[in-house]
């Protein structure tokens, strides 16, 4: 097991290097340059264009730009400067990381808490009224884009004279020190993004869980357990669910990556200060070091998530051995 983890950890570094290399050159394929959007401003003279290119190292060959960037990370832990903000990339990402992880983690937990029980229930009561209703809601949740759900909920809240229609705090609490009332205000804002972002997952997870359960419920060992005269509750939870949940652990590892990227359009509609819109703007502005660092981060989290999922699988399922 230890060897397995060590090997997988060591693979992470060359993978990240490859990801950053590809990402760096894919960004360059995008038409235009970082300085394009400034050209219209009369303050931006031709001389300034040249000088800024030198300042940012954009006059150097691409491979040199990339090499210097990697060298900076290896030697100084410096992920480069943001062109737009004149600041190190790491700090800018750090400012947005907490809220991104908070919202994504809560949305994930929310979707699991809803989806797993519904999945089990609909499998056990297959083709009943509950199953039909849950499937309908599941498909609806899957079909409605998250931003549309966000807009609809905002319109609903506004029509009920509600106040909390986006952001993470009311205006007066944003720059106030933490207090109990600030926490309450935060919670009153938080449920909206969690539902909007979580609902999409609910539907797919629920379908997955239902299918797994149906599969397992037809297995011989479940019939054996039943014929032993075990209580149905024990058959379901101890025998069926424990086996049905394995594939979902792999899925959980994959959804880890969403912790850092988050939902772009929903975050924009709901006014969330998260990584998604930041990445989008940086891509648009060709702020290259911000973009690759973010892509690097989400690949890292994805790989760690997968590793954790594999380890977890080995723990919950004694049949799986990596040696």
């Amino acid at each position: 097991m230890f060897n397995f983890i060590l090997k997988r950890t060591l693979v992470i570094f060359p993978t990240l290097l490859a990801v950053s290399f590809i990402a760096f050159f894919v960004i360059q394929l995008q038409p235009g340059s970082f300085l394009d959007s400034y050209l219209e401003d009369p303050r931006f003279s031709q001389e300034t264009v040249t000088r800024i290119q030198e300042q940012l190292g954009l006059d150097k060959p691409l491979i040199v730009q990339y090499g210097l960037w990697v060298w900076g990370i290896v030697t100084r832990g410096d992920f480069g400067q943001s062109f737009t903000a004149n600041r190190p990339v790491a700090g800018l990402i750090g400012e947005r990381m907490f809220w991104t992880v908070e919202i994504a983690a809560l949305a994930l937990i929310f979707s699991w808490l809803i989806a797993i029980p519904i999945g089990i229930l609909t499998a056990v009561r297959r083709n009943g009224v509950v199953d039909g209703l849950a499937s309908f809601l599941g498909y609806a949740g899957l079909a409605i884009p998250d931003f549309l759900l966000g807009l609809l909920l905002i319109a609903l809240i506004l029509s009920l004279n509600g106040k909390n229609v986006g952001g993470l705090f009311s205006n007066e609490y944003i720059d106030a020190p933490w207090s109990f009332s600030k926490l309450l205000d935060h919670l009153a804002h938080l449920w909206l993004p969690i539902i909007v972002i979580g609902v999409n997952h609910v539907a797919s997870l629920q379908r997955q869980m239902r299918a797994n359960m149906l599969d397992v419920l037809n297995q011989d060992y479940v019939r054996t357990a039943r014929s032993k005269g075990l209580q149905e509750r024990i058959v379901i939870y101890r025998h069926a669910v424990r086996n049905a949940i394995n594939p979902l652990i792999s899925i959980a590892g994959l959804s880890f990556a969403e912790l850092t990227s988050g939902s772009l359009i929903a975050a924009t509609v709901l006014g969330l200060p998260t990584i998604g819109p930041f990445l989008y703007d940086s891509i648009k502005a060709k702020d290259q070091y911000v973009v690759i660092t973010l892509l690097l981060l989400s690949s890292l989290v994805l790989m760690i998530g997968n590793l954790l999922a594999d380890v977890l699988l080995a723990i919950v399922d004694p049949r799986i051995r990596y040696e």
């Binding site: 807009l151 506004l158 509600g162 205006n171 944003i174 509609v269």
Partner: peptide
């Protein structure tokens, strides 16, 4: 004087309509 950072016309409209 406060500047609330809100992206996009929909979110901005919502923050105006709720009185912020």
């Amino acid at each position: 004087l406060e500047y609330l950072i809100v992206k996009g016309p929909d979110a901005q409209a919502a923050q105006f309509l709720n009185g912020t």
